[in-house]
């Protein structure tokens, strides 16, 4: 039986930038353990020497000319931005003192 404790749940929640409460962490911890347990059945499969399936459709590299083309206007792009100022997306401080 795998156990994914609440500490691990909180850690992965932060990795995916998801706010989470203590109660939620407990609920997810129980659910994750049973799901991961189920996934562990893959251990039965012998995969020595089996390559990882890295491609699925066209295996070739697709290249194109690096040419300037018209794109969405700044005004149009910013229509969906929650906050903008002087033609830029506005967010709180990104770089600061820790």
């Amino acid at each position: 039986m795998s156990t994914i404790d609440t500490k691990t749940v909180k850690h992965v929640a932060f990795l995916v930038r998801l706010g989470i409460s203590e109660e939620e962490a407990q609920k997810f911890s129980a659910q994750f353990s049973s799901i991961i347990d189920y996934f562990n059945m893959l251990n039965e499969v012998e995969t020595t020497g089996v390559p990882s399936a890295s491609d699925i459709a066209n295996a070739e590299n697709v290249l194109r000319e690096d040419a300037v083309q018209p794109s969405m206007s700044r005004e149009e792009f910013l229509k969906n931005a929650p906050q903008s100022e002087r033609g830029y997306v506005k967010v709180p401080t990104v770089l600061g003192e820790e």
């Binding site: 994914i4 749940v9 992965v12 929640a13 939620e24 997810f28 994750f32």
Partner: peptide
């Protein structure tokens, strides 16, 4: 969605 993205991060970590 929360479950899946957390489990995804777990499987990739």
């Amino acid at each position: 969605v929360k479950r899946r993205i957390m489990l995804g991060a777990y499987a990739l970590s």
